[in-house]
């Protein structure tokens, strides 16, 4: 197991290099001059422009720029913005908002998804199953914007239960965005668990558990559930990493100052250092979470053994 983890950690290096290079090249390829964009309508002297270009290595070829940047990253320096602010600062300030949002979303996803999926499987082909199936298709099919505006309208404006923008009210501020971010994943968890549990409930070992004289609650809750949850846990883990990237839209709708918003702003401002810094972090997060999911998989399913 230790060897497996070490090997996986080594595999991180090429993954991160390739991912960051692609991002860097894409930012590099955005047409327009970032320094001119920085100046906006105001004229900027040729000397100032040249100083900035030198400072950010903008005259170097792509590969040289990239390696100079990565050399900094390797020692924890993600560079600075055109305003001279360290990117690390921005990340430290913005990341907690996004993490908080993702955390709230995952909790919602687990609680609602697992309850709905379990009920649907137990009452298979009955009303509650149909309800879960239809509503999960709806949630996946309806554009996320519509869900977001719908929630804002009903629970924010009409009922006034939750704020519709900003993070001024602490935990309450994250409820509506949490639901929006979690919506599609919750529907997918419910469907995945429903199908997985239906299949498990028909398995021979569940029949054995019944033949052992166990109560139905124990047969379902322990013998079937422990098996049915294996694919669900894997999905939730992998989805958590995706959520951080997907938070851009939710953060924009609810005006949350997270890294999603920041990355969006940086792309518009052509601030390569910020974009690449944040995306590198997300890539890193993604591969680490995936490793954790794979390790958890081995604990959940004893038949899986890593060499």
């Amino acid at each position: 197991m230790t060897r497996y983890i070490l090997r996986r950690l080594l595999q991180f290096i090429p993954v991160i290099l390739i991912a960051t290079f692609i991002i860097y090249a894409m930012v590099f390829a955005i047409p327009g001059d970032p320094i001119r964009a920085l100046g906006g309508d105001r004229p900027m002297s040729e000397a100032v422009q040249q100083t900035l270009r030198d400072q950010y290595n903008l005259d170097d070829p792509l590969l040289i720029q990239y390696f100079k940047y990565m050399a900094g990253v390797a020692v924890g320096d993600f560079g600075t913005t055109f305003q001279g602010r360290p990117v690390t600062d921005i990340i430290v300030q913005r990341l907690p908002v996004t993490l908080y949002l993702a955390f709230v979303a995952v909790i919602i996803q687990i609680i609602i998804g697992v309850i709905a999926g379990t009920l649907a499987a137990i009452f298979r082909d009955r009303f509650i199953d149909r309800l879960v199936q239809v509503s999960s298709v709806l949630v996946v099919a309806v554009p996320i914007l519509a869900i977001a505006f719908g929630l804002q309208f009903v629970f924010g404006l009409q009922l006034g239960w939750f704020p519709i923008a900003g993070i001024g009210s602490g935990f309450y501020s994250y409820i509506l965005p949490g639901f929006v971010l979690a919506s599609v994943s919750t529907a997918l968890v419910a469907r995945l668990l429903r199908n997985s549990l239906v299949e498990t409930l028909q398995s021979d070992y569940v029949r054995t558990a019944t033949a052992k004289g166990l109560k139905r609650s124990r047969v379902v809750g322990r013998h079937a559930m422990r098996n049915a949850m294996i694919p669900v846990v894997t999905f939730i883990g992998a989805d958590l990493a995706t959520m951080l990237g997907g938070a851009i839209l939710t953060e924009a709708i609810f005006n949350l100052p997270g890294i999603g918003q920041e990355v969006f702003r940086a792309i518009q401002a052509q601030e390569g250092t910020v974009v690449v810094g944040i995306v590198t972090l997300l890539v890193l997060f993604f591969v680490v979470v995936n490793l954790i999911v794979d390790i958890a998989y081995a604990f959940l399913d004893p038949r899986i053994r890593y060499e």
């Binding site: 398995s203 021979d204 070992y205 029949r207 054995t208 558990a209 013998h223 422990r226 098996n227 294996i230 959940l300 399913d301 004893p302 038949r303």
Partner: peptide, 8 residues
């Protein structure tokens, strides 16, 4: 094999 629970 199929009648024993694989995860316990």
């Amino acid at each position: 094999l199929s009648s024993l629970n694989p995860v316990f």
